[in-house]
Each structure stands twice: as C-alpha cells, then as structure tokens.
C-alpha cells in the first residue's frame, strides 16, 4: 500500500493507505482525528471541510494520496496548546452558533477560510453566500452568521475582545 506523508495541524503525519482512501478516512480512521465529520459523502453538506494548503476543501472528495506533502489543518488544530480557543470557535460558543453540533467543525473551518480571504470585511449577505457549501439541518444559520460577523472583527484586529452576544 502506498504511504502518504503530510503535515496535520503542524505535526508530521504519515500512514499507509489504499489508493482509494479519502482524506477524511485518513484523518478519522488512521489519525483518529474524529472532529472532522462525514455527513453526505457526496461533496454537498460541508461537515468534512478542512484546510489543505490554506484553502478550504471537502475532505470526503479528495484522496489521501493527493495530499502527499500537503499542510492540512482540521478543527483539532485551531485551539492553542493551552486550550485557548480560536476566535472563531470562541464566537461560535458566545453566539450559540450550533444546535446539534454535527455541522459545526465544517462551519468553523469554512468560516475561517472565508474571513481570512476577505480582509476588507464581510457583510451578513456575503457571509451567507460564503457558507453555501455548508448545510446546517438544525436551521441554525442565523446565529452562525452573527458569530462569524463578530469573529471577523477579532481576526482582523478591529477589536481586541470578542463583542458579547446580547442577552
């Protein structure tokens, strides 16, 4: 079986995989990083979104062997070693941007890529358009958009502290 070597969350990782092994299987089954979820297996729902070389992709539609030498970041790679959450994670918590939580890892990964690519800042409408590849079946979009709108202010250095959600 071919061996694939890559960087996952800043650490070198390698595994022997089948050619047909998908990136999400490598992450979940081989590396036991189960924070990345599989919702639909057909590139629609976005629960499996991770970053590959800085861009968000759906890990259920990429072969593990295609990631040879790549830098992959998953939801597990966001928080600081001391447990301090990434501003986007903090915002999802503060704004209660989840109900069942299944879509959340993909939402957070997509949201971070979206904010990083748009340093000029995003309107609520642009945030909604940017999340078209992520489905939330608890209909939790409203709070997700609020969380991302708040997190972008922290990520772009506009504010030091995350704006608190209204009671």
């Amino acid at each position: 079986m071919p061996k694939v070597s890559l960087t996952v969350n800043g650490k070198p990782a390698s595994a022997e995989v089948e050619n047909r092994t998908l990136l999400v299987e490598l992450l979940r089954e081989h590396l036991r990083l189960t924070g990345t979820h599989v919702g639909c297996d057909t590139s629609q729902c976005g629960a499996c979104v991770v970053h590959v070389n800085g861009a968000s992709v759906k890990s259920c539609t990429m072969l593990a062997v295609q990631c040879e030498g790549a830098e992959v970041v998953t939801i597990e790679g966001l928080a600081a070693p001391d447990g301090t959450l990434h501003p986007m994670q903090e915002a999802f918590r503060e704004y209660h941007a989840l109900q069942c939580g299944f879509c959340t890892p993909g939402m957070v990964m997509s949201a971070i890529d979206l904010v990083q690519r748009n340093p000029q800042g995003l309107s609520d409408r642009e945030i909604r358009e940017g999340l078209e590849g992520n489905l939330c079946r608890c209909t939790g979009y409203h709070n997700i958009v609020r969380a991302i709108a708040a997190a972008q202010q922290v990520m772009h250095g506009k504010v030091k502290e995350l704006p608190r959600a209204a009671e």
Partner: peptide, 9 residues
C-alpha cells in the same frame, strides 16, 4: 458552480 470548497478544488 458550487460552494467555496468546490470552487477551490
């Protein structure tokens, strides 16, 4: 054509 992740890939 698809969401951002499809556009990226």
């Amino acid at each position: 054509v698809g969401g951002v992740q499809i556009q990226n890939a």
